[in-house]
Simulated scan of single mutants.
Amino acid sequence: MSNIGETTLEIDLSALEHNFKYFKSKLNPQTKFLGVVKAFAYGTDMVVIAKKLEALGTDYFAVAYVKEGVLLRDAGITSPILVLHPQPINFGVLIDHCLEPSLYSPRILKLFLEHANEKKQTHYPVHLKFNTGLNRLGFWENDIDYILKTLDARNELKIKSIFSHLAASEDQGEREFSLTQISTFKKTANELKEKVDYSFFRHMLNTSGVLNYPEAQFEMVRSGIGLYGYGNHSEIDKHLKPVATLKTSISQIHKIEPGESVGYNRGYTSDGYRVTATLPIGHADGIGRQYGNGKATVIINGKHATIIGNVCMDMIMVDITHIDCKEGDEVIVFGKESSAESFANSSGTISYEILTAISQRVKRTVV
């Protein structure tokens, strides 16, 4: 049976390679590169993306939760994996799979130390997250003495790196704030360096940070959204290639007379003779209700078709009055022709959200 017309997320690995090389070109030769593959690699396919990045020479990976790291290990990924937000209930599994935790608070440090002791670990690599202004996760600068006192005369853990996160690296209007964050992080790193008798590495820059604050590369940088083709700025996007293209097809075409309504709660009422197309994709696939009622468009035969009425669970309807098309024709929701950033902006959100929202029931194919 043919799969033509099935809603599909195409993953372009040549685009991924292009983006990886673009960001690598911005780094000093010795700077390590961490690829962020959390959230199913920003809605694509975590294993496929990680394997390609590992083959390209990525030094580190980052995931949000332990379950994601386990998935990578089970798929054969051998590179170091940083877990950015590990939960204590999963510490045992984390150690069993040689994942490296971010420790970000006195409570988490104490609990992980207990697990490492129970599993008879020696010098298990950990990464200390410091809060420099994002106020989300992280130790404070004045926690250094507590950390060292907790680890004093213990050999279960070893600090592999310390890191922080810029709050507004893409916003030049917040440049002074970002520079203050960088300065605070340098001060924290220097203080810790003076008090431990071994070396560790530092990382702070995310995708926009790599481009806007190259002087703060330290020993490693992290890139997430940039790898998938989005640079948080239209000028940067010109240098990148979207990795994911979301495609579907026209299931049925309707001719609508003046005054007729379309969809649930009569969300759209025609002001004249219209032609609509119904597509097999809806909010259960990640296209939320906020994109309906004239907000977002899709591409059919090179032309924009506006989503009309309320988005259904499994379907959306679009206005094709001005488009020469037929049932079965391909529809591009977002991708190279019309970016996920543009699609997201139509409803006041960002590319991160629409990319990571694409349901796992949507078929993934690699091109």
Results as ranks from 00 to 15, higher is better:
Ile4Val: 12
Leu9Gln: 01
Ile11Met: 08
Leu16Asp: 02
Leu16Ile: 04
His18Asn: 13
Phe20Gln: 04
Pro29Ile: 14
Gln30Tyr: 13
Lys32Glu: 13
Lys32Tyr: 12
Leu34Lys: 12
Gly43Val: 06
Thr44Arg: 10
Ala50Gln: 06
Ala50Glu: 04
Leu56Phe: 06
Leu56Gly: 04
Leu56Val: 05
Gly57His: 06
Gly57Trp: 07
Thr58Glu: 06
Phe61Tyr: 05
Phe61Arg: 01
Val66Glu: 02
Lys67Val: 11
Glu68Phe: 06
Val70Cys: 12
Asp74Ile: 01
Gly76Lys: 09
Thr78Glu: 15
Ser79Trp: 03
Leu84Lys: 03
Gln87Asp: 10
Pro88Gln: 14
Ile89Arg: 13
Asn90Gly: 02
Phe91Lys: 02
Gly92Pro: 03
Pro101Phe: 14
Arg107Asp: 15
Arg107Ile: 15
Ile108Thr: 02
Lys110Met: 14
Leu111Ala: 08
Phe112Tyr: 01
Glu114Ile: 12
His115Gly: 01
Asn117Trp: 00
Lys119Gly: 13
Lys119Glu: 09
Lys120Phe: 12
Tyr124Arg: 01
Val126Tyr: 14
His127Tyr: 09
Leu128Glu: 07
Gly133Thr: 08
Phe139Cys: 05
Ile144Phe: 11
Tyr146Ser: 00
Lys149Pro: 00
Leu151Trp: 03
Leu151Ala: 08
Asp152Lys: 14
Asn155Val: 06
Glu156Ala: 12
Ser161Arg: 09
Ser161Thr: 13
Ala168Thr: 03
Ser169Lys: 05
Asp171Lys: 07
Gly173Trp: 00
Glu174Leu: 13
Arg175Gly: 04
Ser178Gly: 10
Ser178Val: 15
Leu179Thr: 06
Thr180Tyr: 15
Gln181Glu: 14
Gln181Thr: 02
Lys186Asp: 13
Lys186Pro: 03
Ala189Gln: 04
Ala189Thr: 05
Ala189Lys: 04
Asn190His: 11
Glu191Pro: 04
Val196Ile: 15
Val196Asn: 05
Asp197Trp: 05
Leu211Ser: 03
Leu211Met: 12
Asn212Trp: 00
Asn212Arg: 04
Ala216Arg: 10
Ser234Gly: 07
Ile236Arg: 05
Leu240Cys: 10
Lys241Ala: 10
Lys247Leu: 15
Lys247Asp: 08
Ile253Leu: 14
Ile253Pro: 01
Glu257Cys: 00
Glu260Ile: 03
Tyr264Met: 05
Tyr264Gln: 05
Tyr268Cys: 04
Ser270Cys: 11
Ser270Pro: 02
Tyr273Thr: 03
Arg274Leu: 10
Ala277Trp: 01
Ile281Met: 03
Ile281Gln: 04
Ile281Lys: 02
Gly282Lys: 08
Gly286Met: 06
Gly286Asn: 08
Gln290Arg: 15
Tyr291Ser: 04
Tyr291Cys: 02
Asn293Gln: 15
Gly294Trp: 07
Lys295Glu: 08
Gly302Met: 11
Gly302Asn: 09
Thr306Lys: 09
Ile308Tyr: 14
Val311His: 03
His322Ser: 13
Ile323Gln: 11
Asp324Gly: 05
Glu330Cys: 07
Val331Thr: 09
Val333Tyr: 02
Phe334His: 12
Gly335Ile: 09
Gly335Trp: 08
Ser342Val: 07
Phe343Gly: 02
Ala344Tyr: 04
Asn345Gln: 13
Asn345Cys: 07
Thr349Asn: 08
Ile354Tyr: 09
Ala357Phe: 01
Ser359Leu: 01
Lys363His: 02
Val366Met: 11
Val366His: 15
